[in-house]
Design a protein around this nucleic acid. Sequence first.
DNA 1: TTATTATGCATAAGAAAATTATGTATAAAT
DNA 2: ATTTATACATAATTTTCTTATGCATAATAA
Lengths: 110, 110
Amino acid sequence: MSNSKLYKGSLNTIILKLLNENDKMYGYEITQKVKALTKGELNITEGALYPALHKLEAEGLLDVEVAKVDNRLRKYYKLTETGTKETVNKLNELAEYIKTMQALVKPKFA
Amino acid sequence: MSNSKLYKGSLNTIILKLLNENDKMYGYEITQKVKALTKGELNITEGALYPALHKLEAEGLLDVEVAKVDNRLRKYYKLTETGTKETVNKLNELAEYIKTMQALVKPKFA
DNA sequence: TTATTATGCATAAGAAAATTATGTATAAAT
DNA sequence: ATTTATACATAATTTTCTTATGCATAATAA
């Protein structure tokens, strides 16, 4: 992702959440979806995305299925059962992180 | 920090915000303050904190003042004018990040 | 009284996760 | 005919952290 350093560490969470909502997606589709959902604010770079997908697959959180559409290759990823469980964890972690940061940053009166 | 990978990138924001509220602080004090404010959830490691402070100083965002208390060394840091401006930016970035992530993660209906 | 914990700084080695820069290839649009 | 969009991939580098040390003093516990 090419915007804020804050996004570091949240890419996996984003990927898992999108796959949790959309059943199966391919890499390029993920980049476009994120761009659309964030109104262009967040642009996932390929150099970050593809290695992340490969790693999630290697860890058993994602399954892959190769397809050919319009003579172009697509690799569809979907959550495994483990992946679905891990999605819940990641989302909880993110909610926790946001809560913690707000506790640190908001209080003019603490 | 020794908890979540999500914290990557937010340390500078935390430091700047604390200094914005407390005028001047020393490193160890920052670690304790963060621990207290987050009820032990977030523990800044020294290996992350001290290099970060040095870098912020080198960038002209912080001024240092050495003091000796109880025969022990303390390095008090405070925001420069530039540092105060940058604090505003960092806090805006954080707010943006949180908004963006919530947009990505919350919508079951988008 | 001696060992541990707390206070207070610092840096080096390594890992994790990005950015940036390439590279390949096909399809569509200019 | 060239550029843009689609679609994958990896290598080099940078950033930012964790983990492991190291030094030193003060306070507490065994």
